[in-house]
Design a binder for these strands. Structure first.
Lengths: 288, 288
DNA sequence: TTGTGTGAATGCCTTCACAGCT
DNA sequence: AGCTGTGAAGGCATTCACACAA
């Protein structure tokens, strides 16, 4: 399920697996660091370690791009940096707009990782008239009314949504109507978009919940072990290191469905009544 | 599973696929929305649409938790909210600390999605003495010196790193030494951690690069089609192109540790020259 | 000898399709 | 009749292990 796959003439002669695409930025970062230290070549083993993956995977990934390495030697750092950049489309300029200049929007606007990767913040947009004109990260915030003209005047095809959940779907529709075809969504809502538009979602709450799941399990195992070997050894090493899946490899595509039905997500939910005595659950986390 | 299931939910969490765990928060959010609208039951089809996945996948996911639905009817919203919350460990309180109170750290501190899901910001920590005492999101920022005592006094097991790349590894080590076993990393660096510690990474730059990859491909297809049939205009985007991404250097450090092949976490990018400022110029997350 | 490139094997995830409960 | 729960099948992704190039 590639992102935004339509049932049209799907020319996929150049099929790089999604999982591989998601790791290319990772390799690129490691390679850039090596490049700055003037390291001429690097082996798959070294690069893999720097990127946090295993070497077999890295070699397989690179094999999809072509044979850019030299047997018995390794990969030429500079050359590889260029090839990956080109493959990712970073050799061209990508103007992006950020909609919703709250704490997060401001953080994104100030993020330095943009420029060096070919991304240029073309505009900051906010619905609050009071924000208009205010400079954030050296750029004057513009009002939502200007959204359409900004997009078309700058040829923007990538938009970042950092608005509250309630406004996300509407902003999304305006962006798409104006010509944006790729959206990075930070609002906790499932955006519904037409075919051909890619959506990627980032949600801190979700990441934390996944961590909590594993954390809870760790606590359970510990308890079980402690119980099993009551006071046996002190330095009880919970050898169960859990390797979490990367959060980056999630395509996230348009929600099928007709209308934009349930677009509103709760930012302040009423929480569940969690009094019910959960079976065998630890009541609290570590006593203070 | 032919395992006869009785009325008693026996927490068979032993083998919930990672992919499923990653989707549970998604279902939970959709269910919470339904709950607030007082919807009593929901079918896999409806819930799947609201969560942006397909129904077969959703049913399969739920089957790992147990049989919480009713054939011919659907799922009881309230009950499912509770079951998923419990499975994720959200029925307990998770104190978290946020290290690095720059734009991003502040955005995270202000995020409303925490409290409603069992997460409580126990403390905000920053290395800049000038920040100490300053209130952010109603909480006074504390200096890094207090890190260890804060962690142990509050029984914190989850830490969020929103510092510049250069400080991330060190902060990570202190957090781990103090007892933190789950880390959400926003700094564009591969963290090296001992076994038993989970790390999840969020990186805006990577997300944008993945979008750029697909966007580039779309442009290519479009061009092919446009060439085949000139005319039929639309908000034709005009993109300037800048050859080569280089130009500026990317000092950022890569605290790469061979590690035991454990620590799994996607990496990041973003240049971020080591401006020691408290201003975490890191990717971000969260709705404003 | 060293380290890439890659068929083959393995395992995980998704999708299908239908049996079975309400 | 409707919808869940789930074996079975099909796709991807990862890992293995080794032929082959330098």
């Amino acid at each position: 399920m590639a992102t935004g796959r339509t049932h049209r003439p799907a020319t996929r002669s150049r099929g790089i697996p999604e999982a591989t695409v998601a790791r290319l930025p990772l390799y690129l970062r490691a390679l850039t660091a090596l490049s700055e230290r003037s390291v001429p070549t690097v082996s798959s083993e070294e690069l893999a370690a720097a990127a946090g993956v295993n070497s077999a995977k890295l070699r397989k990934d690179f094999s999809y791009l072509g044979s850019y390495g030299t047997r018995g030697v390794g990969y030429d750092v500079e050359y590889l940096v260029y090839q990956i950049s080109r493959e990712l489309g970073l050799t061209q300029d990508w103007p992006v707009v950020i909609v919703g200049i709250g704490n997060l929007g401001a953080a994104l606007a100030n993020y330095g990782g943009f420029a060096s990767r070919g991304f240029r913040v073309a505009a900051l947009i906010d619905a609050d008239p009071a924000m208009a004109g205010k400079p954030v990260a050296g750029i004057a915030v513009q009002h939502t009314d200007e959204l359409e003209s900004i997009i078309s005047d700058n040829g923007v095809s990538i938009g970042v949504i950092a608005t509250p959940a309630g406004a996300a779907q509407q902003v999304c529709e305006r962006l798409v109507a104006a010509g944006v075809t790729s959206i990075l969504n930070f609002a906790p809502t499932v955006l519904s978009v037409p075919d051909g538009v890619d959506v990627r979602k980032v949600d801190l709450s979700i990441e934390l919940q996944i961590l909590a799941f594993h954390e809870q399990r760790k606590a359970g195992e510990e308890a079980a072990q402690d119980a099993a070997q009551a006071g046996a050894t002190a330095p009880a090493p919970a050898r169960a290191s859990r390797v979490l899946p990367d959060a980056a490899a999630t395509p996230a595509t348009a929600a099928t469905g007709p209308a934009t039905g349930a677009a509103t997500a709760p930012v302040a939910s009423a929480d569940a009544r969690d009094n019910q005595g959960p079976d065998g659950d630890v009541p609290a986390v570590m006593p203070a």
